[in-house]
Amino acid sequence: MAMPITEPAPRALAGPVAGGDDAAIIAESLAEPERFAVLYDRYAGQLYRYAGRRLGAADAEDMVAATFLAAFRARGRFDTTRADARPWLFGILTKELAKQRRREGARLRAIARACTDVPEAGHADAVADDVTARAARQPLAKALTVLAPADRSVLLLIAWGDLTYDEVAQALAIPVGTVRSRLNRARRKVREALGGNDPTKVAEMP
């Protein structure tokens, strides 16, 4: 069946890579479990960065470890008609992150709070950039706290995980239409929280 033309084209980097596509690696790992390490080497960095952004550095490694452990156990159920395991791994990571929802909320609120701590003394240039960057975090962190967890996951898988709509749908096992509606809702809420209701922004939706 032809791919729907309205969907974004798959990114070149997301496809099969040297050393065999992911599905082949996973199939091989059923007989040779240690082959699964190839997937770790391919995707641990991306998963670590995504988990770190959402939960902080202290927890990112634990999240990556939990994701690969769960993926390894579930590898027999991987749909080998899909060459790319990245959406599958992000889906597992999303489930692991969902268990930490409270902590993610606490982190976002901490970021939002921390930004109000602009030091009054010490105007060194070195800290100026940092303060500016941190001040910019506050409204975004606040905005993310008000999103429903399912909407937040869709938004961040796209914005931070670099997944396409179709990949998010695969990762979360939901229809593409649901991805679109959750993304639209999340973006609308973020825009409102950022204080802008500029209708022209709607035109920027991918």
Binding site: L140, W160, E204
Partner: peptide, 14 residues
């Protein structure tokens, strides 16, 4: 756009 701001925020968190 809000997505761009969010991506910048992500890079900042990195």
């Amino acid at each position: 756009s809000d997505l761009t701001k969010l991506q910048d925020f992500g890079r900042d968190l990195d």
